[in-house]
């Protein structure tokens, strides 16, 4: 505003009269822009502070356009991608990596509403497909896999020692069907019903105390002993390992989550984005992912 005024120090009264409503409408516009950003981020989970995505078109082109990499990633990748950034810095001195970790659905909404990013790593192929169909991302490929496991509270670790024991729990928490872990959980229960008895899924669902909105909520409730058992990803265990018992689900009954990654169209640093992708797919990157509990990439994966 100041720059605007100083350019016209001796404007005519008419011009000043014009400027006032213009200023007012600019202010109103700003309010509306702010509001739409708030709306786009609508219902951010409180426990995840995230940088607001930079506004789409208003920012002028930076003088060094390739110095900043913006990575949007599923919340479960927080730890692994944090380490990945340290590795990335070794070969890219002076490049700052900005992360936005959130639920995959939230990120999809942000990208659909025009948030700017170079890379998107999703916990779910469905959302990536939707973004590809909408022309928001380039070709994508699966870069890692995550294994659902059964977690049991310390009080119940002697009782629930396999998936077959799950109906013995009084309170089970699972992900709600709308989130990937909930969808996989129901698929696992269906598979288990085929081998552990037709009513297995029904017996488990009769004990479900809550259908949580994300994996961390499931894990929190089991590790606090509030629920007896739940199903989460192995990569989410982290520091909770000490407060829960981990029971592996037999591989023939399990449903493995596939994580796709893609370059986002219209991002400021596509070249850096491609470097990030190659790091994630390299043996160094895969090693970091495995340290965080992700699975080794199966060789059958092909780009989509």
């Amino acid at each position: 505003m100041k720059a605007f005024d100083s350019q016209r120090p001796r404007s005519s009264p008419a011009a000043r009269r014009l400027a006032k409503p213009a200023r007012r409408s600019i202010a109103a516009l700003m309010a509306v822009c702010l509001a739409s950003v708030v709306l786009a981020l609508g219902g951010c989970r409180t426990e995840k502070p995230k940088p607001a995505p930079p506004p789409a078109k208003s920012a002028p082109a930076p003088s060094k356009p390739e110095q900043k990499l913006v990575v949007f990633a599923a919340a479960s990748l927080r730890e692994a991608f944090g380490k990945m950034a340290d590795e990335f810095a070794k070969s890219h001195a002076g490049v700052s990596v900005t992360f936005n970790f959130a639920g995959t659905q939230e990120i999809r909404t942000q990208l659909e509403q025009g948030a700017v990013a170079d890379v998107f790593a999703s916990a779910d192929e469905r959302h990536m497909k939707a973004l590809k169909d909408a022309g928001k991302v380039e070709m994508w490929s699966v870069f890692t896999e995550n294994e659902p496991v059964l977690v049991v509270s310390n009080e119940q670790r002697g009782t629930i020692r396999s998936l077959a024991d799950l109906p013995l729990a009084n309170r089970i928490v699972i992900g709600v069907e709308e989130v990937p872990i909930g969808k996989y959980t129901l698929q696992i229960l269906d598979k288990a019903s085929a081998s552990l008895g037709k009513d297995f899924r029904a017996r488990v669902e009769a004990r479900v105390a809550s259908r949580e909105l994300n994996v961390r909520q499931v894990l929190a409730k089991v590790s606090l002993g509030e629920a007896d058992a739940g199903i989460v990803y192995r990569s989410d265990l982290g520091v909770a390992k000490a407060s829960v018992a981990v029971v592996t689900i037999p591989s023939e009954l399990n449903v493995i989550a596939k994580y796709p990654i893609a370059i986002v169209k219209g991002g400021p640093s596509p070249a850096l984005g491609r470097d990030w992708l190659s790091l994630v797919l390299s043996s160094d990157g895969q090693g970091i992912l495995q340290q965080s509990g992700f699975m080794a990439l199966s060789p059958s994966v092909v780009p989509h």
Partner: peptide
Amino acid sequence: LMFAGNLSGKTQTLPLAIYTAFE
């Protein structure tokens, strides 16, 4: 969400239903 959980008809209030639908 933290204290009562999210179960339709029992603890899923309207804001929780909105967030569930949002997913």
